[in-house]
Amino acid sequence: MGLHELRSRLTIIPQDPVLLSGTLRFNLDPFSNFNDSELWSALEEAHLKQFVESKPDGLSYEISEGGENIR
C-alpha cells in the first residue's frame, strides 16, 4: 500500500476541534469526495445546517486560521 493510499484511509478525530483556513466546504471535505447535497445532508444530521446557512457565502464562507471568525 502506498503512502498516499494509506493517508487517504486514515482518520484522526482530535479531542479539540481544528479548523483550517479555507472554505467551510474545504474543512468538511478536503479531498472533494462529496457533492453539495451530501455535505448539506451531513450538516443537517449534525444540526449545523442552519448555522452554515446563516453565513454570507454558505459552504463557500472563508474560515480564518483556527476558525477565529466563527466563534
Results as ranks from 00 to 15, higher is better:
residue 1 M to G: 15
residue 1 M to E: 12
residue 2 G to Q: 11
residue 3 L to I: 15
residue 3 L to C: 11
residue 4 H to A: 14
residue 4 H to N: 11
residue 4 H to T: 13
residue 5 E to I: 13
residue 5 E to W: 13
residue 6 L to Y: 09
residue 6 L to R: 14
residue 6 L to H: 10
residue 7 R to P: 07
residue 7 R to H: 08
residue 8 S to R: 13
residue 9 R to I: 04
residue 9 R to K: 13
residue 11 T to E: 14
residue 11 T to C: 14
residue 11 T to L: 15
residue 13 I to R: 11
residue 13 I to V: 15
residue 13 I to K: 13
residue 14 P to F: 02
residue 14 P to S: 04
residue 14 P to E: 07
residue 15 Q to K: 10
residue 16 D to H: 13
residue 17 P to S: 08
residue 18 V to G: 12
residue 18 V to R: 12
residue 18 V to I: 15
residue 18 V to F: 13
residue 19 L to P: 05
residue 20 L to I: 12
residue 20 L to M: 15
residue 20 L to N: 09
residue 21 S to L: 03
residue 21 S to F: 07
residue 22 G to S: 06
residue 22 G to C: 00
residue 23 T to S: 06
residue 24 L to T: 00
residue 24 L to I: 09
residue 24 L to M: 10
residue 25 R to H: 01
residue 26 F to T: 10
residue 26 F to C: 08
residue 27 N to Y: 03
residue 28 L to Q: 06
residue 29 D to V: 03
residue 30 P to Q: 08
residue 31 F to H: 15
residue 31 F to T: 13
residue 32 S to H: 14
residue 33 N to F: 14
residue 33 N to R: 14
residue 33 N to A: 13
residue 33 N to L: 15
residue 34 F to T: 11
residue 35 N to R: 14
residue 35 N to F: 11
residue 36 D to R: 09
residue 36 D to I: 08
residue 37 S to L: 11
residue 39 L to I: 01
residue 39 L to F: 00
residue 39 L to Q: 03
residue 42 A to E: 06
residue 42 A to I: 03
residue 42 A to C: 08
residue 43 L to I: 06
residue 44 E to G: 11
residue 45 E to T: 14
residue 45 E to I: 10
residue 45 E to A: 13
residue 46 A to G: 08
residue 46 A to K: 08
residue 47 H to R: 14
residue 47 H to T: 11
residue 47 H to M: 10
residue 48 L to Q: 09
residue 49 K to M: 02
residue 51 F to P: 00
residue 51 F to I: 08
residue 52 V to W: 02
residue 52 V to N: 00
residue 52 V to G: 04
residue 52 V to E: 03
residue 52 V to H: 07
residue 53 E to L: 09
residue 53 E to D: 11
residue 53 E to F: 05
residue 54 S to P: 05
residue 54 S to R: 08
residue 55 K to V: 07
residue 56 P to S: 06
residue 57 D to W: 01
residue 57 D to V: 01
residue 57 D to S: 03
residue 58 G to A: 07
residue 58 G to W: 03
residue 58 G to R: 01
residue 59 L to E: 02
residue 60 S to Y: 00
residue 60 S to W: 05
residue 61 Y to N: 03
residue 62 E to Q: 08
residue 62 E to A: 05
residue 63 I to H: 04
residue 63 I to T: 02
residue 64 S to P: 00
residue 65 E to L: 00
residue 65 E to H: 03
residue 66 G to C: 03
residue 66 G to S: 00
residue 67 G to V: 04
residue 67 G to M: 01
residue 68 E to Y: 10
residue 68 E to C: 09
residue 69 N to Q: 01
residue 69 N to L: 02
residue 70 I to V: 09
residue 71 R to S: 10
residue 71 R to K: 15
residue 71 R to D: 06
residue 71 R to V: 12
